[in-house]
Computed example of a mutant assay.
Amino acid sequence: MNFHYSNNIRTIALATLVAGAMASCTPESSDKDLAPLPVASFTAEPLAGNANKIVVSSTTPGGFIFEYKDDNGNTSTRETDTLSYFEAGEYTIQFTVFTSGGYAKAVQKVTIAQTAKTQDILKGGDLGAGSEQHWTVLNTSGTQTDIRIENGAMHFNNTGNANSNGAIYQKVAVKQGKSYVFSGKVSGKGANNSWFEVYIDKAVPTQGSDYGGNKFVSLNTWAGCGKVPFSGDLAFIGCDGAGTGKKGVMSFSQSGDIYIVIKAGSSSGSLGDGGIVLDDIKFLEEI
């Protein structure tokens, strides 16, 4: 059986829908006034037993959205949270809170008396003789970036107008509630159309497949870094990834194995004359 609808029926139906929508959007009358503007306030106290962690907690009545930011790269949107500081120094914590009356900001300074005690849980990070046994080269399919550990460093190379990719990785066990810091000295003479990335993720690398997941920090010529000669700690000079600006600091919501995957390549480009060199890689765990 076929059904046919006239234009008149369609017009009536549309008018009915519009009228209903307008009726549903009519504001209700109310004598209620907006709440007064809030005065932002929060506490910032050292964690018991660990002076390198600061517990921040809102004391603003009626708050329902919270944001903490500091000049150490820490951020949080919880009402109460713990911020970690590895290096001694003075830090500024900025707090923003929203209530039914609007939003307000507050600022506090905290002083960290001493640098946190840590241990390096990465194996072969000094890249000296025998360190290659702790690292596995990952074939990501396609033309492979040349990756070698020699002369006390990790070398990533390709030639000409290359389309290459490749990675090297190591498995590490982490603990919930601990803070960790990644660092590595990276240098190069300037690349083009290229990437140099550090992934820190629980996904297991698979030979013959590219690696994705949580890109922590990277040099990326499209993002604006790595195009001119560079030398420094990748955690500080990298311009792309979730850990950008966080000075290499991270934590994990669960204990277990994670993989530190270092990936480099080019798309019709080059890693530069002599390639990219990485040395003195560390993955520090808070003691």
Rank of each mutant, 00 (worst) to 15 (best):
W195P: 12
S255K: 00
G177F: 00
A191T: 13
N139W: 14
K189D: 13
K227G: 15
D33W: 12
I12N: 07
L17R: 10
C225F: 07
T244F: 11
S41D: 06
F42W: 01
F252R: 02
R10H: 15
I168S: 14
S29V: 14
G89Y: 13
V18Y: 04
T140M: 14
T82Q: 05
A167R: 04
H134C: 09
N74W: 08
E45D: 11
V172W: 07
K246S: 15
I200M: 03
T140Q: 05
A116S: 08
V174D: 03
Y180R: 07
K263Y: 07
T59I: 02
T136F: 09
G190P: 08
G89Q: 11
K189F: 14
K263W: 04
S187V: 00
K175P: 04
F64Y: 15
T206E: 07
I112M: 02
V55L: 05
A173I: 11
F196D: 04
S41N: 09
I200C: 01
F252S: 04
K185C: 02
G160N: 08
S231L: 06
Y259G: 02
G102Q: 05
V186R: 01
A23N: 13
T145N: 00
T11C: 12
G190S: 10
G124W: 06
Q144K: 13
D233Y: 03
S58V: 00
S255T: 03
K246I: 13
F182W: 04
D126L: 05
A51D: 08
D257N: 00
V186Q: 01
G49N: 10
Y259C: 11
T75F: 11
T75R: 07
G208S: 07
I258T: 12
I121M: 00
F182A: 02
N50P: 05
L284C: 10
T16E: 06
G248S: 07
T11K: 14
N2Y: 09
V186G: 01
V198R: 03
E87H: 12
E79S: 05
S194R: 08
G243D: 06
A129F: 14
P38C: 12
V217Y: 05
I237P: 01
A113W: 11
I12C: 04
G274T: 05
D257C: 05
Y85T: 09
G128V: 04
F283R: 08
L127Q: 06
K117L: 07
Y211E: 00
H134V: 11
T43A: 10
G142P: 02
V217P: 03
V18W: 06
T60A: 07
Y85K: 03
S179W: 14
K189T: 15
K227N: 15
H155F: 09
L271V: 02
A48W: 06
W135E: 14
F252I: 01
A116R: 04
K117G: 08
Y259P: 12
G102T: 01
N158C: 06
D210L: 10
G177V: 00
H134K: 09
L83K: 04
A48P: 07
V198W: 02
G130L: 00
G184S: 05
C225R: 06
M22R: 13
S187F: 02
P36I: 14
F42E: 00
G212T: 15
T140N: 07
L34F: 13
A88Q: 08
D71R: 12
A235P: 06
P36R: 01
Y259S: 06
S218C: 03
G238P: 10
I168F: 09
P205V: 01
G101I: 04
D279W: 02
V217L: 06
C25Q: 14
